[in-house]
C-alpha cells in the first residue's frame, strides 16, 4: 500500500502556547493553603425556664476571662498577660481536664484513664470527669482578635495533647496521626471510629459567653 509521508507539524509555537498557559496560572492562583482553628457555635435554642436550667458545679467549670486590655484571668484568681504565660494556662487546663475526681455523667463511673494532670495529683478543685468539664470563655467586645485566637489555640493544644495520649494508649498512634490518615483516606470507617472514640474520651466542651462591653 502506498502511503504518503505526512509533513512534519511545526511545533515552534507550542512553547508560546504553553508559556501563555503558564503565565495565566501564575497570575490567577495562589500557593497558600489556609490553616484554621475549627470551632462550633452552639445551637440557637430558646432560653430555658429558671427551674429547668442545668446547674454546673464550680469545680467542673474552667473559667477564662479576657478583658479589653487583653489580660487573661483564669479561674478568677490568676492574671496572665504575656505570650510566655500561655504554657502555664495550658498546664492549668490539663490539670483541670485530666483530674478525674468524680464520676461521669453518662456512665456514672470514674474516669479510669485520667492521670491527674502534669502533677499526677487529683485535686478536689478540678473537674469530676472529662465529659463534665466545661471551659467557659468570657471576652469583651474590645478584646483583640489575636489574644482570642491565642486562647483558642491553648485550648486546642490542651485537648490535642490529652487525645494524643489516649490514642497512643489505645491504638499506638497519636491522635494527630489519626487525623492525618483520615485526610488521606476519607472513606475509611475504621479510622473514623477510632477518632470518634478518642474524641469522646476528652470531648471539647467550650462555651463562649456573649462578650461584654459595647
Amino acid at each position: 500500500m502506498a502511503r504518503r509521508q505526512s509533513p512534519e507539524i511545526n511545533a515552534g509555537s507550542m512553547a508560546d502556547i504553553a508559556f501563555l498557559l503558564l503565565i495565566f496560572f501564575l497570575v490567577a492562583t495562589t500557593m497558600d493553603i489556609d490553616t484554621v482553628i475549627a470551632r462550633k457555635l452552639p445551637q440557637k435554642t430558646p432560653p430555658k425556664p429558671k427551674d429547668q436550667q442545668e446547674e454546673f458545679h464550680a469545680r467542673n467549670v474552667f473559667e477564662i476571662s479576657v478583658n479589653r486590655n487583653n489580660q487573661i484571668l483564669i479561674e478568677g484568681k490568676d492574671w496572665y498577660q504575656s505570650e510566655s504565660d500561655y504554657p502555664k494556662i495550658k498546664d492549668q487546663l490539663l490539670e483541670f481536664l485530666d483530674n478525674g475526681g468524680g464520676v461521669s455523667n453518662k456512665t456514672k463511673t470514674k474516669c479510669d484513664y485520667c492521670q491527674g494532670g502534669p502533677d499526677k495529683v487529683v485535686s478536689p478543685d478540678n473537674s469530676d470527669h472529662p465529659d463534665k468539664a466545661i471551659v467557659s470563655l468570657k471576652t469583651d467586645r474590645g478584646t483583640s482578635y489575636e489574644t482570642f485566637v491565642k486562647v483558642q489555640d491553648v485550648l486546642g493544644q490542651a485537648y490535642t495533647e490529652l487525645r494524643n495520649r489516649e490514642a497512643r494508649r489505645l491504638y499506638n498512634v497519636s491522635f494527630e496521626d489519626l487525623l492525618d490518615e483520615k485526610s488521606k483516606d476519607k472513606d475509611n470507617i475504621e479510622i473514623d471510629e477510632k477518632i470518634e472514640k478518642v474524641k469522646a474520651l476528652f470531648p471539647e466542651i467550650i462555651s463562649e459567653v456573649e462578650p461584654t462591653g459595647n
Binding site: D34, T35, V36, I37, A38, R39, K40, L41, P42, Q43, K44, T139, D140, R141, G142, T143, S144, Y145, E146, F148, V149, Q152, D153, E210, P211, G213, N214
Partner: peptide, 30 residues
C-alpha cells in the same frame, strides 16, 4: 480571616447572625 488587631465586637455580631441561620461550623484562619 481577620486582622490581629481586630476587636472581638464585630466577630461577635457576625457569630450571632450565623447562629440565627444555623451556620454553626466556624473556623478562625491562623
Amino acid at each position: 480571616k481577620a486582622d490581629k488587631a481586630t476587636k472581638l465586637g464585630t466577630l461577635a455580631d457576625i457569630k450571632k447572625e450565623l447562629r440565627n441561620i444555623d451556620a454553626l461550623k466556624i473556623s478562625y484562619v491562623a
